[in-house]
Nucleic acid binder design. Structure first.
Length: 1027
RNA sequence: GCUCGAGUGGUGGAAUUGGUAGACACGUUGGACUUAAAAUCCAAUGGACAUUAGUCCGUACGGGUUCAAGUCCCGUCUCGAGUACCA
């Protein structure tokens, strides 16, 4: 009986589905374990072999945990709202729901075919109304909350209202908008309903605010920074302007400190934590207020260097600040306005890319130094960003390079406040060696002491306070898109109103087209049935809007991260219609134990999810304020692209360059160009040359990487290349030009272009299936390939796996040829999970060969019949088994899956040579392999005579006694170099070992009469003889 | 620029607390079986010299610690990821 993986895999996949083998129960005597994958966006292209890497790893771990007696939750679903489906809808008119459903079907088939142990009964799709009902529900909870700094958590807005009613807002410590006017209890009560709502909106955790966005009028949409290239849209190249729009924002900044602190409590990769830490960007310093001369205005600045306050020689404001217009003097008005206008035209990208140009304008206003009372000129400059801190800086040119450059450029004085430091060339910003001078009460202090003292003095005179500032900004939560969650929001007199939870979900309306409306409204503006009837509590036709009981609904939709910010909790109770999840479910499952996914989500999904989790924790909805205990970033699988080299259709004949200096390939190239005699058109248009005939550019690269000497290059070019290999293209020269193909007389040069070829045409030894390539593209049908030894060897390069590079490998094809178990093993075998590594289909034969060998261990009967004996295994077989158990268990616990695959291979190699077919070894072996190659394991388990699935059978127990050795083959080193090996009993003492070694004939041979100075003996490890 | 990570054969990668560098696999070469191919099996495979024994070099580069360094320390280079007028 052959290893028929197709039949086996099909049967067991059916078995698992039919028996719901992997369905997790929400209550169990077993301990719980929650293994989660970052769910996929179902794209139209389907999966390539890179995608399942993380899923295979998490599946192995989930299966392992089942063997270890855990009740495992291992769900999967789809992040199915998103731009590609919408883009496709705009192009083809097909409803995104239709294409999304079709894509999901493909994904499901591909996932099923890989044998994952997902509990599909818990599948969620972010785009299904049953799911987004709860996304809308959370939005309402966030809207109905404010952040109380006193209790340091989110609270219901009702607690805020009662404070307002009782005593106004004077004592309220909240994370809220800036500059809210103070009001008393009586004021509050006298406010109209609308006024009250407006005030509350400034406190809510999600609020409407004007945010500046990249608006593209031609596309009618807002673009992300990376969708803009050189100031125009990436798609279509339309102009983009900065525009203020009223949008929903999430007050994530309220959680900045807790998001930072929480990182210390989770086992996540350090780089990921670092990037979140950077993103949150905590900096300590002081906020200092400067009065303006001859004006009531004040300017607040945030500085991390209050110790340098006596070094201030000017102030710089962001040009966007409204204050600028108010303080500019009439004389400077024209200049300032011109500068503001110029800045507005520059995109953020421009301002970022262009660090060297220094620009700014003087406002004519002067601020007053809080201590010296000296006048300080106020400038504006686009190196100051409106969105960070207060949008203003106190400029200390001696201590900050940007301030320094600015001061130099505009001839502003640069006072030196550092002891013994020369600032004539550049600013001095080394905090560690700072000693302050020329600074009144700060003189002689170091950075730390001066900072403390400065803050204390600033506070004493009421000019400011010590402050912690965060880079993290509130997150814009509105998108001008169709294919996203609709907001459960309607507007009464422009004020947003939440729809009561019992009327959710508010379903996405149908539209005729998915583009923005002609008046520039979001796509939902095209919906004709999109108004809220407050009497019947239903969505009704727009023409019923009467602004009495029927009101317009919100036209924006939620962003991509809305649906993915709490899905891990919903999996615990995904079909609950009455609650987001039951208390029992969340209390049982608590949080994710292991989360696997890509590092690209570091500052998006993984930050927002932590924010929502903390919010839900504050509300008492979830028991943990961090949702995932451990997280692993799987590396990317890159493609190994294959290249053919298309020769340009003419070659250049030049004077012979023998004897010339060829020390540099650049010179060589130039030389060839200068000495051109003639250009010869080839007989054939399409000629593909082997890599070794590729142009000089390739040589340069090769030379550098291989460190070739000049001599070697000469040899290669003048003899090898110029003569033998060039001969292979001689027949392409037209007969009447043959005289120029005299390699003794002339040099021939040409260039070629590297073109991607589909990797499926290339064999494991890099030779191209020329016929397949010719058939691939009609223009190639009569192309000529210059072969070497009968083959065309392609060039190889590792690149990102992508359709356009023709290096995508489809798992369907791999499963068809080798089976899912082979694919699973091979993906793990490639290398450490976290590392990125190139895919090379050729290597899969190793994994496949292993499975066949494994199969043969159990099928040693006549014609490969199943044959397992009840004999007692040999000592060696027991040893093989138990060292395998030990290693595999350690490896899984450490997520070192690649090494455990090697361990399996070694075990099977050993058992094969031991001719072991004992049940006592082969049964545990099947369980060991089961997490990695579940189909074959199930089949072997069944053949071993067991009923039901192998999936919850106890993991084999490691027993030390089988590994106990009586002797060790010691490596004997002389001066650290291993010279020979010596088998010695393990129970020998150090002295006995030394005696045995010294008595050995090879020792004498090595020593050649010398007396060793020292003999190092590490029992059980090594012997080193020095001298 | 800053932060983090990584450099080991032709390739992917192994290598416990410092203790036999290159496990395992691919590829390559030779051989067996076969009419042939596939499949399978056996052998060799870091480099150089010697080819019997063996010797020397070798984990990006230059130093250092140690009986012993891929592993620890200092410096340099290269590559990758993230991030950026962040005051």
């Amino acid at each position: 009986m052959q290893y028929d993986f197709k039949e086996i895999e099909k049967n067991w996949q059916e078995f698992w589905a039919k028996n719901e083998t992997f369905k997790a129960k929400n209550n169990s005597d077993k301990p719980k374990y929650y293994v989660l994958d970052m769910f996929p966006y179902p794209s139209g292209a389907g999966l390539h072999v890179g995608h399942p890497l993380g899923y295979i790893a998490s599946d192995i771990y989930a299966r392992y945990k089942r063997h270890k007696g855990f009740n495992v939750l291992h769900p999967q679903g789809y992040d199915s709202f998103g731009l590609p489906a919408e883009q496709y809808a705009i192009q083809t008119g097909q409803h995104p729901a239709v294409t999304t459903a079709a894509n999901i079907k493909t994904y499901r088939r591909q996932l099923d075919q890989l044998g994952f142990s997902f509990d599909w009964s818990r599948e969620v799709r972010t785009s299904s109304p049953e799911y987004y009902k709860w996304t809308q529900w959370i939005f309402i909870q966030i809207f109905n909350s404010w952040y109380n700094k006193t209790t340091d958590k989110a609270e219901s807005i009702d607690t805020l209202i009662s404070v307002f009613e009782a005593e106004g807002n004077a004592n309220v410590q909240a994370v809220c908008d800036e500059g809210i006017a103070q009001f008393s209890s009586a004021d509050w009560k006298s406010f109209s309903d609308k006024e009250q709502q407006e005030i509350l909106l400034q406190y809510r955790l999600t609020y409407l605010a004007e945010s500046e966005v990249n608006w593209c009028p031609a596309l009618g949409t807002v673009l992300a920074n990376d969708e803009i290239v050189n100031g125009v849209s990436e798609r279509g190249g339309h102009p983009v302007i900065r525009k203020k729009m009223t949008q929903w924002s999430m007050r994530i900044s309220a959680y900045a400190q807790r998001l930072l602190d929480g990182l210390n409590t989770v086992d996540w990769p350090q780089p990921l934590k670092d990037s979140q830490t950077n993103w949150i960007g905590r900096s300590e310093g002081a906020e200092v207020t400067f009065s303006l001369k001859d004006s009531d205005h004040k300017i607040s600045v945030f500085t991390t260097r209050p110790d340098t306050i006596f070094g201030v020689s000017f102030m710089t404001l962001a040009p966007e600040l409204e204050l600028v217009a108010e303080i500019t003097t009439p004389e400077q008005k024209a200049e300032v306005e011109a500068y503001i206008e110029a800045t507005a035209k520059r995109s953020e990208r421009d301002r970022m890319a262009d660090v060297k140009t220094i620009s700014g304008a003087f406002t004519g206003a002067y601020a007053e130094h809080p201590f010296t009372k000296e006048p300080i000129p106020v400038w504006i400059g686009d190196y100051v960003l409106a969105g960070y801190g207060t949008g203003a800086v106190m400029s200390v040119p001696c201590g900050d390079q940007r301030d320094y450059d600015f001061a130099k450029h505009f001839n502003i004085p640069i006072p030196n406040i550092f002891e013994g430091v020369d600032i004539s060339e550049e600013a001095f910003s080394d905090k560690a060696t700072t000693i302050i001078a020329n600074s009144d009460f700060l003189n002689g202090l170091d950075y730390k002491k001066a900072t403390q003292k400065a803050i204390a003095e600033i506070e004493k005179i009421g000019a400011g306070t010590g402050k912690v500032n965060y880079r993290l900004r509130d997150a814009v939560f509105s998108r001008q898109r169709y294919w996203g969650e609709p907001f459960p929001v309607y507007y009464v007199d422009g004020m947003p109103q939440m729809i009561a939870a019992e009327h959710l979900p508010i379903k996405l309306p149908e539209v005729d087209k998915y583009l923005p409306t002609e008046t520039g409204e979001p796509p939902l503006g095209n919906a004709t049935v999109w108004a809220w009837d407050t009497v019947n509590n239903e969505v009704v036709s727009n023409d019923k809007i009467d602004h009495k009981t029927v009101w317009p609904l919100e036209l924006n939709t939620m962003p991509g991260w809305a649906g993915s910010s709490q899905y891990f909790n919903r999996y615990m109770d995904p079909n609950n219609e009455g609650e987001i999840f039951s208390k029992e479910a969340i209390d049982y499952w608590q949080d994710v134990d292991l989360y696997i996914g890509g590092s690209e989500h570091a500052t998006g999904h993984l930050l927002y999810s932590r924010f929502w989790q903390k919010f839900m924790f504050d509300l008492g909805l979830v028991p943990k304020d961090e949702f995932a205990k451990k997280l692993i970033n799987q590396g990317m699988i890159t493609g190994t692209s294959a290249f053919v080299y298309r020769m340009n259709s003419n070659i250049t004949v030049s004077k012979k360059m023998l004897g010339k200096d060829l020390s540099d390939a650049d010179d060589l190239y130039k030389l060839t160009k200068d000495a051109v005699i003639k250009t010869v058109q080839l007989k054939k248009k399409l000629v593909f040359i082997p890599k070794s005939l590729f142009s000089f550019h390739e040589f340069k690269k090769w030379k550098r990487s291989k460190g070739m000497s000049e001599e070697e290059i000469k040899k290669l070019i003048e003899t090898d290349l110029a003569k033998e290999r060039l001969k292979s293209i001689e027949h392409l020269i037209p007969d009447d030009e043959k005289e120029f193909f005299d390699l003794e007389k002339y040099s021939i040069s040409y260039s070629a272009e590297a073109l991607h070829t589909d990797v499926s045409f290339v064999s494991s030894s890099d030779d191209l299936d020329v016929e397949a390539y010719k058939n691939w593209r009609s223009e190639n049908s009569d192309a000529e390939f210059i072969l070497q030894d009968g083959n065309y060897i392609v060039g190889r390069e590792v690149e990102k796996m992508s359709k356009s590079k023709y290096n995508v490998v489809n798992p369907d094809a791999i499963c068809e040829e080798y089976g899912a178990d082979s694919l699973r093993l091979y993906e793990m075998f490639l290398g450490p999970l976290e590392q990125s590594k190139p895919w090379n289909t050729a290597g899969i034969t190793g994994a496949h060969g292993f499975l066949k060998k494994l199969w043969r261990l159990y099928h040693s009967g006549a014609e490969g019949a199943f044959a397992v004996s009840e004999d007692e295994p040999s000592k060696d077989s027991y040893k093989t088994l138990h060292k395998t158990i030990k290693k595999v268990e350690e490896d899984i616990e450490n997520f070192s899956f690649n090494t455990s695959v090697s361990t399996f291979m070694i075990a099977v190699n050993e058992l094969s040579s031991q001719k072991c077919n004992s049940r006592a070894v082969l049964e545990p072996l099947a369980i060991l392999v089961s997490p990695y190659a579940p189909h074959i394991a199930e089949e072997l388990w069944k053949q071993l005579g067991h009923e039901g699935s192998i999936s919850t059978v106890d993991f084999p127990k490691f027993e030390e006694k089988y590994l106990v050795e009586s002797s060790k083959e010691y490596p004997v080193s002389f001066n650290g170099k291993m010279r020979f090996k010596l088998e010695l009993p393990l129970d020998l003492s150090k002295d006995e070992i030394e005696a045995a070694v010294m008595a050995h004939e090879k020792t004498a041979q090595q020593l050649q009469g010398r007396t060793p100075k020292k003999v190092i003996v590490v029992p059980g490890k090594i012997i080193n003889i020095v001298g």
